[in-house]
């Protein structure tokens, strides 16, 4: 390595220094809330009021965990939440992918009207839907059941929109050649189209899972038995009137972010593969 190469590298590093500084500040700012969650979940709630606030983790983690389990049956509600989110993600993703593909790649009468109608539903605020949907679920007798939590939102307008946009870019010629080679529609979809769309599908799955995992108001209205609660609904019952169990809430919230983190780690490879694939093959 020559001196001039070294100098160039040093120059490049110096030029990048401000960028790294900005990134560093940014990451500290976004990490502090998480750090606070960790600290707060290991102290007693009474230690979280008053000045100065603790900055190092304390020794109350196991006590808080035991209380969390005792107060809201946390293990049970985590399983409830996981089950609801997984089932919802599976069904909703299938609907989004298939509807998106249909809207992007098939010409049929009323296609644009159908797509327009789907988009319009995104503009209806949730609050308008609550009472009529609630009455509907009550008249079917589904109150306090998971199908009432899952089914009304299985067709997600945003998911369909996302998948339609990504399938629009898919070359028609590839689909046509598959058909000419004798593949039926489903086989073409399953073997030719889906593998290429993996990165977008990974994004869809993460988005869909997260939506259901964080969803609060609808599960709150539907679920009337403590053992059926999902995590956000259960955690909210820890806000009392003359006392708020902040350390329990923080611990619960911390544990509730873990599934999202794991999901992201699993699908991260898909993201990167998708990006690199594009870069290398052009």
């Amino acid at each position: 390595m020559t001196r001039s190469q070294d100098a160039t590298r040093l120059g490049a590093s110096l030029r990048h220094a401000p960028i790294y500084l900005v990134l560093l500040v940014g990451s500290i700012i976004s990490l502090i809330p998480f750090l606070w969650m960790v600290v707060a979940s290991t102290h007693r709630t009474s230690d979280l009021f008053g000045t100065p606030l603790p900055v190092l983790p304390g020794g109350e983690l196991l006590t808080n965990l035991a209380r969390l389990q005792e107060d809201v049956n946390f293990g049970r509600v985590m399983i409830n939440s996981l089950a609801v989110a997984i089932v919802y993600t599976a069904f909703s993703s299938i609907v989004s992918i298939m509807a998106g593909y249909g809207l992007a790649k098939f010409s049929f009468r009323g296609r644009n009207v159908a797509f327009g109608l789907i988009l319009v539903t995104m503009m209806i605020p949730m609050q308008v839907l609550l009472v009529p949907l609630f009455q509907m679920m009550a008249s079917i007798g589904w109150i306090d059941s998971y199908q009432a939590v899952i089914l009304p939102f299985v067709a997600s307008a945003f998911g369909i929109f996302l998948m339609r946009q990504s399938f629009l870019d898919f070359p028609d010629s590839l689909i046509e050649s598959a058909r000419i080679d004798g593949a039926n529609e489903f086989r073409t979809f399953y073997r030719i189209v889906l593998p290429v769309a993996k990165p977008q599908i990974a994004a869809l799955i993460i988005y869909t899972f997260m939506t259901q995992w964080n969803s609060f108001i609808w599960p709150l209205l539907m679920l009337n038995t403590e053992d059926n609660y999902t995590v956000p609904v259960a955690l909210n019952t820890m806000i009392g009137l003359s006392r708020v169990d902040y350390s329990g809430l923080m611990l619960g919230s911390l544990l509730a972010t873990l599934p999202l983190l794991i999901l992201f780690l699993i699908f991260q490879r898909q993201f990167i593969a998708g990006l690199l694939g594009g870069a290398v093959k052009g």
């Binding site: 009472v131 609904v233 019952t237 009137l241």
Partner: peptide, 22 residues
């Protein structure tokens, strides 16, 4: 007896009263 949570209760009550059921 169901603990519906203090913060949550009023959303459930408003919708239930309005819907006339639940």
């Amino acid at each position: 007896v169901v603990d519906v949570g203090y913060d949550n209760a009023y959303d459930k009550l408003s919708v239930g009263f309005k819907a006339g059921s639940g």
